[in-house]
Structures are given as structure tokens and as C-alpha cells.
Design a protein around this nucleic acid. Structure first.
Length: 126
RNA sequence: CGAGUCUCCCAGGUGAUCGCGGGCUACCUGCCGACGCUUCCGCAUCGCGGUCGCCGAGGCGGUGGUCCGAGGAAAGUCCGAACUCCACAGGGCAAGGUGCUGGGUAACUCCCAGGGGGCGCGAGCCCACGGAAAGUGCAACAGAGAGCAGACCGCCAGCGGGCGAUCGGGGCGUGAGCCUCGGGCGCAGCGGGCAAGGGUGAAACGGUGCGGUAAGAGCGCACCAGCGGCGCCGGUGACGGCGUCGGCUCGGUAAACCCCACCUGGAGCAAGACCGCAUAGAGGGGAAGGAGUGUGUCCCGCUCCGCCAUCACCCCGGGGUCGGUCGCAUCGAGGCGUUUCGGUAACGGGCGCCCCAGACAAAUGAUCACCACGGAGCAAUCCGACAGAAUUCGGCUUAUGGGAGGCUCGGCCU
RNA sequence: GCGCCCGUAGCUCAAUUGGAUAGAGCGUUAGCCUCCGGAGCUAAAGGUUACAGGUUCGAUUCCUGUCGGGCGCA
């Protein structure tokens, strides 16, 4: 089964259970950026799954949490074709600065973290 | 122009590139597949079980089309309901809530109108606004006295072998003077009268005037304020107006206990119903019996009464956790518009149109450009309020940008 | 989401049916003591009682609304 050419993140590629989040938090490797934190863990064989976290303590009220999560998800989505289809569990934790940072800065922050985790293929020079 | 006040409205727009959630619909020769038909085999016989295949209601997934997709507060969770479960029999106490009147509403602590009180020059705004002559309690400090008051200073007459000065009479003495009697005055004392004035306090038992008195006092009178009774008038009523009588005055606090009237069972969609799976091993229902103890979704209170269970009998297959489906989102206390309808209004009626977010680590977006509005800046340019549905409605409260209109007050000009 | 509770000195707690000056311990600061420090003794500072209104003559206390913090649930 080949993934469609688009950039959507299907339901099978999302972290949903709170057990998954707790396990990833305790067993994963953290990669700290200036606007967000990436917690990653290799799991060969399973399909890659990603989740986004914006806590009340680190981000703020509901409208800000929604915005932080949407910005991070959009940045990851636009690079989804460069992320391996299988083998990784990824969790992004937003900081307060993810609300006000310029889009370019936030995007490069995410790219750096993904590269450090080894979960981002280089840009194809087509 | 400035200050203020009330009511209403909006919550930037358009486009491009990627996207998200849901409904409906079409397609896929994608997966799963009820019922029915059928091939073969077994049991042993009008059938049952397994199995090869056909048909394909329907479900899941994908793709395309189309429609819809955050708020005025979605917030706080402060009230009121719908809905669900608790054994939906009932009663009493207790507890809690509400508290001027009339209306609106499914209901309300909400809304509208009115009455009363307070604030403001005014437009207007605010009020837990029943009862303190049912009862109990409370009021520090200060002050004489603080709740059927009280007498510190003060005012007043009386009493007498007090003291002091003074006036008058009599007697003695040459005289200065001495003795004695009497009058009023002052000071002090004694036992009384008074509550006007001073002073204390948040609060001290009406105000002004005249009379009255030893001095005073509603002690009496006139007017005024306040309270209460009665009568008449207006109003559905709260209440208002007028008259008359009363004792003259009877204070505050009920967001202190309390009294009166009315209302209220408890928990809450993580309510609750159903399905699947694995694990551990004990629950549920029925009938019968007895009346001792105990128990109950009125819990952290009590009780009458009723019911059920605990012990033995019979039957069923249940409960917790995790996941899923429903609850839950098209039909409602529904929304929008309109109306020579009823009503002062809140609102109700009629008519027309519409179906209007529905997720579950949770959609409603990200980025860029242009335009519009407001603000900052010489300019390029920069900034744009509060804030994100979670079972659903009706309110309240709080946060917050901008606009429109009415009204009031003040200043200036004509 | 729903339900419930609590805010007093820097910290932990008090405060009589509502009564005036809001206390105690630890800590802080200063002094005494000691060669120095600790311990001990003496004294002082430190509070918009979370905030804003209301009731009352008077509010930490009673009532209402905000803000902050905490707890529970299937």
C-alpha cells in the first residue's frame, strides 16, 4: 500500500492514546528547539505516528493552545512526504514562543529537530 | 465643542497555494458480509452440522461532486430548566432558598410595567424593599445614663443650735466695743423636685412659639414632622389622596436567632443504555418465609410508614477495566423575516422561509498578497480588542475593540 | 466537562454570638555574650486579613461578585 501523493496525515499516523504519550515521554529521546520540544523514539515495523502537545502550563489558555498546535501541525504536514512512512513515534511539545515566532523561524526549528532525530529526508533536488 | 446617560448594531473583506471535520450523493469490478439458493461430506432421516460456490440488503475504506462548519461572550459555573439514573407509594420535622405589587415565561434569584425609598442640577441610576407594638439576643470605647433609661456639671424651693459678711431693733459701757433678738443674701451640708441647657457617643425618648411653674417638663394649647386606629375616595394590587381621633413620640439591628408567606427529593451526559474482547472468579433474578438486627443515591440530619436484601430453595449468566456504538446534533420551550393582530411593555398570536458546528489527543486552519477602517510616525513602515464549542437550551455576571441614534448638562457662535 | 474546597507576617498556624491594638512559633535585622562563630538572652521591623462592592455604628468574621490555588469523578 503506497501513501497518496498528497500531504495529509492519515488517522493511522496519529498518536491518540494517552498511554502512547506517557510511554513516549518516558522512553523517547528529547530534542530541544527554541520554540518547541521534539520527543522521538524509533520503532521499526510500526507505521510512523505523530502527536502535538500544548499544555495549559507552558502555552496558556485554550485559544493559544489551539493556535500553537495548528501552527506546528501545519509545518509538519507540509514536510510529511520527507518523513519516513514507518519506524518513528514523534511528539511535539509547544512552548509559549511558538505563538509569536515568525513562521520561517518556527519551521526551521522543527526541521532542525526532525533532522537531529533522523526522521527527515533531505530535500529532493528534482 | 466638551462632559454624561440610555438603547441598538458589527465582530474586517477578497483572492491564491496547501489542508481539516461532518451530512447527502455517485463511482470503485477495494475489503467484510445478513437472508435465500446450491455442490460435496458426516450423523441417521419429513431434519441437523460442516463445506465449495452464486446472489447480494447493508457496513467499512478510498476517490469525485455538493452543502454546512465557533462566540457575543463559546468564559465564570452563579441561577433556572430539559434529559438520565437512583425502589417515580406517601407523610412529619429539620435543612436550604426566595421575599413591595401586577404581569411575561417551560422555569428562574431572569425580563417588563408600576409603587415606595435613596443618589444626581438633569437625562437617568441604585435598592435581599415582608415583619422590630410574638419573643430572645447584641451595641466595644466614651459617657451621668444604651432599652419598661439616666442625673456628672447645672436649675429649683425646703430644712437648721453650720460658717461668712451685711441691715434693723433692744440691753450694758464714758468710749472703742460687747451681749442678745430678727430679716433677707452668699457658701457649705442634708434629704427632695426637674430634665430645659452643657458635655459623651454611630445612636440619648420630637421641633418652634405661647401659656404654665419654686424650677421645669407634651404638663396644656397652636402649627409642623412622625407613628398608629377608623372612615371615605382612586387603583386588580403594592400604594396614594382627603378627613377624623389618639397617646403625645412608642429607637437600631432579622446579609443575629426568629415569625409569616411561597418554593425545593438526590445526583449528574465522566448521567445513563447496549455490544465486543481478554482476565480474575461471584453476582443477578424469582418464589417462599420470618419480624430480631442492619441497610438504602434526602449524601455529611432525624423519624413514621413502606419496600428490599442478608440464611436455606429454584433459575439465569452477571460485574469491574479497556475499546466501540448510542445518548449526540435535522424538527426543537428551534432560528430568521414580516404583520392595519392583542398588549404601555416583556411577550403572545397569525403568515412566510429555513434546517443552521457536532468532534472525542478533539475539525472550523496555515502561509502569502491586495483592499477597507482605526491608531502611531516627517516618511518607509508598523500595530489591531476580549477570546476557541464538548449533552442542549433560557438568564445573570465578568473580560473586551469599534460604530450608530435618542436624551441631559455646560461653554462658544449665529 | 461536571461537582467541591481553600486564600491572614517570608513560612506554618491562631483570633470568643461581629468590638478596634490582628497574635504565637520558626525565620529576618540590631544589640549583649564570645578571641570568632553557634547556642542563649534582650529588643525591633515585617499585614490594603487575595481583590472589589454591600449589610452594620463597626467586618478577618455576615452576604454578593471577581482573581488565584487545590481536590474528586467514568
Amino acid at each position: 500500500m503506497t501513501r497518496p501523493a498528497g500531504e495529509r496525515i492519515g488517522a493511522e499516523h496519529r498518536l491518540t492514546s494517552s498511554l502512547d504519550f506517557a510511554r513516549l515521554k518516558s522512553e523517547g529521546t528529547p530534542f530541544r528547539g527554541s520554540h518547541c520540544l521534539l520527543v522521538a523514539r524509533a520503532c521499526p515495523g510500526e507505521s510512523t505516528r505523530v502527536g502535538f502537545v500544548a499544555s495549559k502550563k507552558s502555552v496558556g489558555q485554550a485559544v493559544d493552545r489551539n493556535r500553537a498546535r495548528r501552527r506546528l501541525r501545519e509545518i509538519v504536514r507540509r514536510r510529511w512526504s520527507r518523513v519516513p512512512d514507518t519506524g518513528y513515534l514523534l511528539m511535539f511539545v509547544a512552548f509559549r514562543s511558538a505563538l509569536t515566532a515568525a513562521h520561517q523561524d518556527l519551521a526551521s526549528d522543527v526541521e532542525r529537530a526532525l533532522s537531529a532525530a533522523g526522521a527527515l529526508a533531505p530535500l529532493e533536488t528534482a
